[in-house]
Write a protein that binds this DNA or RNA. Structure first.
Lengths: 200, 200, 200, 200
DNA sequence: GATGAATGAGGATTCATTCAT
DNA sequence: AATGAATGAATCCTCATTCAT
């Protein structure tokens, strides 16, 4: 069925990866519940059953997308923050990293902002693991800033971490829903300014 | 299950209202997609078909819940803010109002934070209407503060409005997902402090 | 959709019964595993989903067919045997009853001889309940005959009961599989003669 | 799992035989319809595809099991009966042979009593060939006994053959389904006594 | 001969909605 | 207005079989 050309022999992208990418696009397009597994298969260029050789089912696709992207997100975040010492600068970097990373892949952003939150059970799952790790990183920076006296000490670090996450999350959601085209990363300065200096 | 008193026979609460309340609870419990219309009917004490006399269908239930609560939310918010003049105080009131209102009804909060966001299409709908109105109110306060010179002028009012909404939204989501019991409204002070004064 | 004629108003046969009858015919025709629920629905003149208002699923159809027919079988057997006193005559009646009852409904016989035995689990289920009851009735007659001295005492009553059942079962199976048309009940005499008098 | 010795590399038992044995065990364990070809392959220690080098498919496995065991069964039966002349003794031998052979291999008995009968089409197939041959052997003995005057002549030989088969079949089925452990062959005496001498 | 990754047809079941009463 | 029995469209997943290596 498949011609034995050299090109076909060694598909550049792994089947597993193609399926995940197709899932992101189809979930973003149709929403998780309305997405059909067979649509994902078609988009990935594989048979329906092939998906089940790599994943446990539709839900596992969503979970895997989330886990793998969060892992790589957190890794690159820590890589970006590593060379920087001052808490204030680290906050700026985290903000920029969040907006630029999600601003780069609209389908992924849709999945992250919308589809991953389709049920309380799913949100709890995410919240307790990966989102928790992310908040932990932010909280550490806040605590560092409070220790070295550059951040005010009367704010609860965990609350600040959530607040920062909330602001960023809303920026991304708003961007995803917006009909206008704009670069999400361009908001990093203003967001950082607001968080660091406040309205007053 | 139903008390067979004459009073129960002629319920004080309208059938329409009972159905909406039942829908909130069932959506919160099972999630929108997994919720069955017949479950809502049972919880409301009506026949399945009766729901269709009052609503267009399952989705209309969710839409109606959202619209009616948002309308009453915005009304009470404006009532609360009306007597207050200073922009800073109005921000504090908006923050407290958000957290206290949602902190009062966990099922409603679950529906608001989770179920209303189950699809891009649904989120767009909300965003363009009611959330837009809410952001407009916040933006007006910010603009007022910038006009009278109490707020810094280098922040874009719309971005500030989104940021405030984002922080509040995350506080509510976090509270909904938390296993600990705590009063959401108690966070109003800290949140306002952060927004107004910043981290530094 | 359905015209409101008087005839249509009161179908003579209940929907539940029509579904069961259709299931017997379709199971007999296609075999349990190959039978499609939608085929049964079509044969019964109902929608696919209607079957699930009356039964738990495909397997429940088979179980119900078995249970209801066995119950009525055992009732009519006891009714037939009641007026008769002599053990030998009761054996003759049981034999005739078995062959005539199953010889009357070929589809039902197919289901009884073939489809009900499609798995060890299913056979165990049947065996422990209804077949056990049937064997109990036969064993009682054998014990009665042994008590009053008309039957030989060196045969284990339970073994004899099984043997009688086995002979009858094979007669029915053979009839079901036969391409020739013949009245199953006509074999009752010979079978009884063999069981009672033996080969010698 | 597989011992990597040279001996294991060249197994003493043919691949074909190992597959058949694995099929018997898996069919007995899971039932024909629920048995997965890949399970059989794993149990036989071969790749899924290898099965198709030796057999036409899943159904062919069942057919082959049946045919080969029936052939060897009939051969050993005739071997056992050959030295014996009297019809009565030959009947006793056939009975003992049936019960002892099947009583020796529970998995095989399960396949024979349950799985081989999962559909009308399959039963017809068996009935017309191998079971027919078996009944023919029994019928010959009966006819012999009737010719030499030791068996009563008013019983139809084919019916007697079926009856004997039915009794034996039920004894095996009952043994397969029984939770008690007992030697099936021990029932040979009583069964023969019943068949030959009857109840009276 | 042997492998096992890939295929893709096939079906039981659910549940939102309707409508005769 | 209210009922609830009936409808039937819609889809995830399994697994026997194939075939390139």
């Amino acid at each position: 069925m498949r011609r034995a050309t050299a090109a076909a022999e060694a598909p550049l992208i792994s089947k597993r990866h193609r399926i995940l990418r197709a899932a992101i696009d189809v979930f973003a397009q149709s929403g998780y519940f309305n997405a059909k597994v067979s649509e994902i298969a078609k988009a990935a260029g594989v048979a329906d059953g092939t998906i089940y050789l790599y994943f446990d089912g539709k839900e596992d696709l969503l979970t895997t997308i989330f886990r793998e992207h969060t892992r790589s997100y957190l890794q690159s975040l820590e890589r970006d923050m590593a060379p920087v010492r001052r808490a204030e600068d680290r906050i700026r970097i985290a903000i920029r990293h969040h907006l630029e990373t999600l601003g780069r892949d609209r389908s992924l952003a849709i999945v992250a902002q919308v589809e991953l939150r389709h049920s309380l059970k799913f949100m709890s799952l995410l919240s307790h693991q990966e989102v928790g790790d992310y908040l932990g990183i932010l909280r550490n920076v806040v605590e560092q800033g409070q220790s070295d006296g550059t951040f005010r000490r009367n704010l609860h670090p965990q609350l600040v971490a959530k607040a920062i996450f909330g602001v960023l999350d809303e920026m991304v959601t708003s961007w995803v829903l917006s009909e206008k085209e704009y670069a999400l990363g361009d908001q990093a300065e203003q967001v950082a300014d607001l968080i660091l200096n406040g309205l007053l």
